[in-house]
Design a protein around this nucleic acid. Sequence first.
DNA 1: GGGGCGCCCTGACAAATGTCACGGTCCGGG
DNA 2: CCCGGACCGTGACATTTGTCAGGGCGCCCC
Lengths: 202, 202
Amino acid sequence: MTIRLLLAEDQELVRTALRTLLDLEDDFEVVAAVGRGDQVVEAAREHRPDVALLDIEMPRLDGLAAAAVLAQEVPGCQVVILTTFGRAGYLRRAMEAGALGFVVKDAPAEVLADAIRRVAAGERVVDPDLAAATLAAGASPLTARERDVLNATRSGAGVAEIAGKLYLSEGTVRNYFSSAIAKTGTRNRTEALRFADERGWL
Amino acid sequence: MTIRLLLAEDQELVRTALRTLLDLEDDFEVVAAVGRGDQVVEAAREHRPDVALLDIEMPRLDGLAAAAVLAQEVPGCQVVILTTFGRAGYLRRAMEAGALGFVVKDAPAEVLADAIRRVAAGERVVDPDLAAATLAAGASPLTARERDVLNATRSGAGVAEIAGKLYLSEGTVRNYFSSAIAKTGTRNRTEALRFADERGWL
DNA sequence: GGGGCGCCCTGACAAATGTCACGGTCCGGG
DNA sequence: CCCGGACCGTGACATTTGTCAGGGCGCCCC
């Protein structure tokens, strides 16, 4: 009984390399390989894979979003998220999106193969260290407004601009920044944004 | 006549995948594969590869630095830089470090194979788009002090701290920030740093 | 009903950040 | 020689950013 795989990874070189690697395993068959998140569902509908291996960083639609759509549209297909970054927030969001497996790219090849087999059998597979880190990061202490304001600063917008967009006074916006900075234990917006981002607090 | 390859890439999964991919080519033989920059020279001395394939993002010593050392210590070995980011600064520094080839990870596999063969024969191989972008980015307009100050801000240090470390007045430090900001056309230190970084102006 | 609590909102204040006009030094070319 | 240009350095000033004290609203629970 061979496991049918869908592979989604944007870097072509890595994609083909992974494909050949996985095809070498007797019980795996890569039935489709795509380079963009928005091609995942279509390919899954056509090829009916048992497991979809999704990178997170992809153009158009990221792997997490693709996983969520996939769970809706092609329920028989289980998801393993495969990513460079063992960031706590990614794992949290992957679980929320219904993924069963989560593997980082600097794991050994056997770990990936093993994870795929276990997920195909319906098990959950997550790196224990990463799971611990995620738990440690905890839930977001940020309020809705604090999130809004932090997100709005991404583009490099100033206070005035943000205040306009959110219909707030400038003072208020600064205030939310201030409390976000306090909660993250950082020294300015930029650091606060990065800090929160890394923990998936957006 | 087979080409002997050294592969340096920190993510184990990608490393083994690339290794199997390259080993499939009849005229390639991967004689060593390492996961840290500081292992490159040692492995090269031991296995005498014809071409070293170096990722940039690696622990301990990045691929560019490793390339520079390699050129000194093992002159017979040519270098191909293989990286995720087609950043102008990377290419510039790769050339300065004596690399002959530069390939991005979302190139097709044939491009990589071709690049390796050409580099083994002593040719230079660079993606033309990237070369154009690098030329467009031009040489750094930043002065020595501007660079110092920008670099010092990486750690998140404030003006006072930087001023102390560089034996300058606080006003002067702010001044360098200001001119760097003007030259990069950005709005604050953080943006200026990122902008300059992306162009290899450090 | 009336605390107590958490969130939203604001303006006044303090501290940091960025801008400007100005000297000083060094160097290469008329 | 002397001028112009590039870089280094400085303090005064304006703007942006962060902090604080405090008021209003809704909700849960006693």
